[in-house]
Lab assay of single mutants.
Amino acid sequence: TLFEALYDYEARTEDDLSFHKGEKFQILNSSEGDWWEVRSLTTGETGYIPSPYLA
């Protein structure tokens, strides 16, 4: 399933992933509550992002 970022986000820890509004992601793991592990389709990087920032 693909999701798109609604807002920009700046990583706060080394496990987080910074991203920009409009960036698209593949969800790798959504079992961690509000923090999902994703792969950016723009950069190929993986990390955790806050799920409320996605649509």
Score class of each variant (00 low, 15 high):
Leu54Tyr: 08
Ser31Tyr: 08
Ala5Phe: 15
Phe25Asp: 00
Leu54Met: 10
Tyr7Met: 09
Ile27Pro: 02
Ser51Asp: 03
Gly47Pro: 00
Leu6Met: 11
Tyr48Val: 07
Ser31Pro: 08
Ile27Glu: 09
Leu28Ile: 10
Leu6His: 05
Asn29Ser: 12
Ser51Gln: 05
Thr42Phe: 07
Lys21Pro: 03
Gly33Phe: 08
Trp36Phe: 03
Gly33Val: 10
Asp34Ile: 11
Asn29Thr: 06
Gly22Met: 14
Glu32Trp: 11
Asn29Leu: 04
Pro50Gln: 08
Pro52Val: 15
Ala5Val: 05
Glu10Val: 13
Glu14Gly: 11
Gln26Trp: 14
Asp8Arg: 14
Pro52Gln: 15
Asp8Met: 02
Glu32Arg: 14
Ala11Phe: 02
Pro52Met: 15
Leu28Cys: 06
Tyr48Cys: 09
Ala5Lys: 01
Arg39Thr: 08
Leu41Tyr: 04
Thr42Leu: 13
Leu6Arg: 06
Ser51Thr: 06
Tyr9Ala: 01
Thr1Asn: 12
Ala55Asp: 09
Ile27Trp: 04
Leu2Trp: 13
Arg12Ala: 11
Ser40Gln: 06
Trp35Val: 07
Phe25Thr: 00
Thr1Gly: 09
Thr13Val: 08
Tyr7Ser: 06
Asp16Pro: 02
Glu23Leu: 01
Phe19Pro: 01
Trp36Asn: 00
Glu14Asp: 12
Phe19Asn: 01
Thr43Met: 03
Lys24Tyr: 12
Asp15Gly: 14
Trp35Arg: 14
Leu2Val: 14
Ala11Val: 12
Asp15Val: 13
Gly44Phe: 05
Asp8Leu: 04
Thr13Gln: 13
Gly33Ile: 09
Phe19Glu: 07
Asn29Arg: 03
Glu4Asp: 05
Ile49Leu: 03
Ser51Cys: 07
Gln26Leu: 14
Asp8Glu: 07
Asp16Val: 14
His20Ser: 11
Glu23Gly: 15
Thr42Pro: 00
Thr46Lys: 06
Ser31Cys: 12
Asp8Cys: 08
Lys24Val: 13
Phe3Ser: 02
Ser51Trp: 15
Tyr7Val: 08
Glu10Tyr: 08
Ala11Thr: 03
Leu54Asn: 09
Arg39Trp: 05
Leu41Ile: 08
Asp15Glu: 11
Ser30His: 07
Glu37Leu: 15
Phe19Asp: 11
Ser31His: 09
Lys24Pro: 03
Pro50Phe: 15
Trp36Glu: 01
Glu23Phe: 03
Leu41Arg: 00
Ser18Glu: 04
Glu23Tyr: 03
Gly22Asn: 01
Gln26Met: 11
Asp15Trp: 15
Arg12Asp: 08
Val38Lys: 00
Val38Gly: 03
Asp8Thr: 04
Leu28Thr: 02
Glu45Trp: 08
Leu17Pro: 02
Trp36Gln: 00
Gly44Leu: 04
Glu37Lys: 09
Ile27Tyr: 04
Gly22Trp: 03
Glu14Val: 09
Gln26Ser: 05
Phe25Pro: 13
Phe19Arg: 00
Ser30Gln: 12
Arg39Met: 13
Ala5Ile: 03
Lys21Gln: 07
Thr1Gln: 12
Ser40Val: 07
Arg12Trp: 15
Glu45Gly: 06
Gly44Gln: 05
Tyr9Leu: 09
Glu23Pro: 00
Gly44Asn: 06
Lys21Gly: 02
Asp15Tyr: 15
Arg12Thr: 14
Tyr9Trp: 06
Ala5Gly: 02
Ala11Glu: 02
Trp35Met: 10
Ala55Glu: 10
Gly22Val: 02
Phe25Val: 01
Ser40Phe: 03
Trp36Arg: 00
Tyr53Val: 05
Glu32Ala: 13
Leu17Val: 12
Glu23Lys: 00
Val38Thr: 00
Leu28Asp: 00
Thr43Gly: 02
Trp36Ser: 00
Ala55Thr: 12
Glu45Ile: 08
Phe25Glu: 00
Tyr9Met: 02
Phe25Leu: 06
Gln26Tyr: 12
Leu54Asp: 07
Tyr53Asn: 08
Glu4Ile: 15
Tyr7Ala: 07
Glu10Ile: 13
Ala55Asn: 10
Lys24Ile: 14
Thr43Arg: 01
Ala55Lys: 06
Lys24Glu: 04
Thr1Cys: 14
Tyr9Gly: 01
His20Val: 14
Ser18Arg: 02
Ile27Phe: 09
Ile49Trp: 02
Tyr48Leu: 12
Tyr9Cys: 05
Glu23Val: 02
Ala55Tyr: 10
Tyr9Thr: 01
Val38Trp: 07
Thr13Ile: 04
Gly44Ser: 09
Asp8Pro: 03
Glu14Met: 07
Asp8Ile: 02
Glu14Ala: 12
Ala11Asp: 02
Leu2Cys: 07
Ile49Gln: 00
Gln26Gly: 02
Thr1Glu: 13
Glu37Arg: 05
Ser30Tyr: 10
Ile27Lys: 04
Ser51His: 07
Thr42Lys: 11
Leu54Ser: 09
Glu37Asp: 01
Phe19Lys: 01
Thr43His: 02
Trp35Leu: 07
Gln26Asn: 03
Thr46Leu: 11
Gly44Cys: 07
Ser18Pro: 04
Thr43Glu: 01
Glu14Phe: 07
Tyr48Asn: 05
Lys24Cys: 09
Ser40Leu: 06
Asp15Cys: 15
Glu45Asn: 10
Leu41Cys: 09
Tyr53Gln: 07
Thr13Gly: 15
Tyr9His: 05
Ala5Asp: 10
Phe3Val: 07
Thr13Leu: 11
Asp34Met: 12
Glu45Arg: 13
Thr46Trp: 06
Phe19Ile: 07
Tyr7Leu: 08
Ser18Gly: 06
Lys21Cys: 07
Thr43Gln: 02
Tyr7Asn: 06
Gln26Phe: 15
Ser51Ile: 06
Leu6Pro: 06
Tyr48Lys: 14
Glu4Met: 12
Ser30Ala: 13
Thr46Met: 07
Ile27Met: 04
Tyr48Gly: 01
Asp34Ser: 08
Ser30Asp: 13
Pro52Leu: 15
Thr42Cys: 07
Gly33Asn: 11
Asp34Cys: 12
Leu2Gln: 06
Ser30Met: 14
Ser40Glu: 02
Arg12His: 10
Glu10Ala: 07
Asp8Trp: 03
Ala11Arg: 06
Ser18Gln: 03
Gly22Glu: 01
Ala55His: 13
Asp34Tyr: 15
Tyr7Cys: 11
Arg39Asp: 04
Lys21Ile: 12
Leu54Gln: 07
Glu4Lys: 03
Gly47Tyr: 07
Ala55Ser: 06
Thr1Pro: 13
Tyr9Phe: 06
Glu37Ala: 03
Glu45Val: 10
Ser40Cys: 05
Lys24Trp: 14
Asn29Cys: 10
His20Asn: 08
His20Arg: 14
Arg39Cys: 05
Glu14Thr: 12
Gly22Leu: 01
Ser31Glu: 10
Glu14Leu: 08
Ser30Gly: 14
Asn29Phe: 05
Val38Tyr: 01
Phe3Thr: 04
Ile49Pro: 00
Glu45Ala: 12
Tyr53His: 10
Phe3Gly: 08
Glu10Pro: 03
Glu10Cys: 12
Ala11Ile: 03
Gly47Gln: 02
Tyr48His: 10
Asp16Lys: 13
Glu23Ser: 02
Pro50Asn: 02
Thr1Trp: 14
Ala5Pro: 02
Phe3Ile: 05
Gly33Glu: 13
Ser31Lys: 08
Gly22His: 03
Leu17Asn: 00
Trp35Pro: 03
Leu41Ser: 03
Asp15Gln: 14
Gly44Glu: 02
Glu4Gly: 10
Lys21His: 04
Leu2Arg: 04
Lys24Gly: 02
Leu17Asp: 00
Pro52Trp: 15
Ser31Ala: 11
Leu2Met: 10
Ser18Ala: 06
Asp16Phe: 14
Tyr48Met: 12
His20Ile: 11
Leu41Gly: 03
Ala55Met: 11
Pro50Ser: 06
Trp35Ile: 09
His20Trp: 08
Glu32Leu: 14
Ile49Val: 15
Asp16Ala: 15
Glu14Ile: 07
His20Gln: 10
Glu4Ala: 05
Val38Ala: 06
Asp15Asn: 15
Tyr48Thr: 05
Phe25Ser: 00
Leu6Cys: 08
Ile27Val: 14
Ser40Met: 04
Asp34His: 08
Asp34Trp: 13
Leu54Pro: 06
Trp35Ala: 04
Gly44Lys: 01
Ser40Trp: 04
Trp35Cys: 09
